[in-house]
Design a protein around this nucleic acid. Sequence first.
DNA 1: ACCTGAACACCGTTCAAGT
DNA 2: ACCTGAACACCGTTCAAGT
Lengths: 212, 212
Amino acid sequence: MGRPRVGVLSRRLIGETALRLLDDDRDTGFRMSDLARALGVRVSSLYNHVENKTAVFAEIREILAERIDADAAPDPRWDHALRNWAHAYRAAFAAHPSTVAYLSALPLDATSTVGRSYDHLASQLQDAGWSAAESMSVIVAVESFVLGSALDASAPQDMLDPGDRADVPTFAAAYHARRELAEVQGATPADLAFTLGLDALLEGLRLRLGRG
Amino acid sequence: MGRPRVGVLSRRLIGETALRLLDDDRDTGFRMSDLARALGVRVSSLYNHVENKTAVFAEIREILAERIDADAAPDPRWDHALRNWAHAYRAAFAAHPSTVAYLSALPLDATSTVGRSYDHLASQLQDAGWSAAESMSVIVAVESFVLGSALDASAPQDMLDPGDRADVPTFAAAYHARRELAEVQGATPADLAFTLGLDALLEGLRLRLGRG
DNA sequence: ACCTGAACACCGTTCAAGT
DNA sequence: ACCTGAACACCGTTCAAGT
């Protein structure tokens, strides 16, 4: 066949296709051969655009990072801006649960888009009175919470279910109470923990800033 | 060879050895063949004790969970108990950074030891005035933060380094300020974010409970 | 009940050949 | 510059044979 007249592949297209495959089949991940088939191409062609499979995941993260950056509504109040960012961040993962396990394993890096989000938030935090060093810690702390919550949310629903274990009665009761409360509120149990935790975290941060 | 007079392998021993291998070589993970060699045994022997490689990771988690449960100092004050648990949790991961990526990908489950920790904490939280449903959310929120922070801490030190990028000046300055502050305090940047975030989270939770 | 050796299966990656 | 086909390499897992 040789080189096609018009380029059929690109790093971005490969990433988008891989993301779609992950969404379609939550359990099994994707194989490079799946990816090639979905793109109407042979496996070896992929390697003209990505170094290896890890680079495909990195591209997926870049795609999600851009979405987060675009979706996070700016707000003049630093705590609201942080909250919006956290919600957009988590929503991106919630829309693609099966990516979480792969992306969280990739060490965070300062890719272009991620770096830009950091830059905006750091400015705003420092304007509000946080020191330069603290502003980084605040961002990383919120991001850590979001990532951990996304991992929790991506786990199978009944993964914590104590079932009929008699040795942990309080845990079992609390587990079912949380599940029922979530159902009533039309949310998932993971949503409840995320909202509760994020609100508490931001409240604690406000308080700390207020104290100087 | 056939069956040895005295059993040389066990699920626990396999897990402990795998944990040691992960500690020794941070980058590459371990192969089942590495594990067998370290145990003085052939690969196929392992499968008499573990179903597959994932089960080895599950055993590692069980080992760490027991350590966390043993190390978390109880305290009559619910917020201190939570804080001690969070610190023990993170310390376990800090001692074995290369496990974090693997274990965080394993969905949380209610293994015996983890379930027991949950049970104790849930009791204490409810005694302090949290509802049953809330007590679960509080525990999950704190655990999510710890896990996310552990992922952050396990990433290479300079992974966020914006380097000489001119497009993100505030981020770059904040990044270096945090690094210097950490050095002065004899901690890692990840430690600073963890402590700041955990304190804020607990402070926010105290406040929320106080408000009813 | 449990270790061994050999084979299998799967899949990521490489590379010379082609246009 | 980029797709193809074929081969390679690595490694997790299985299983009949042995004690």
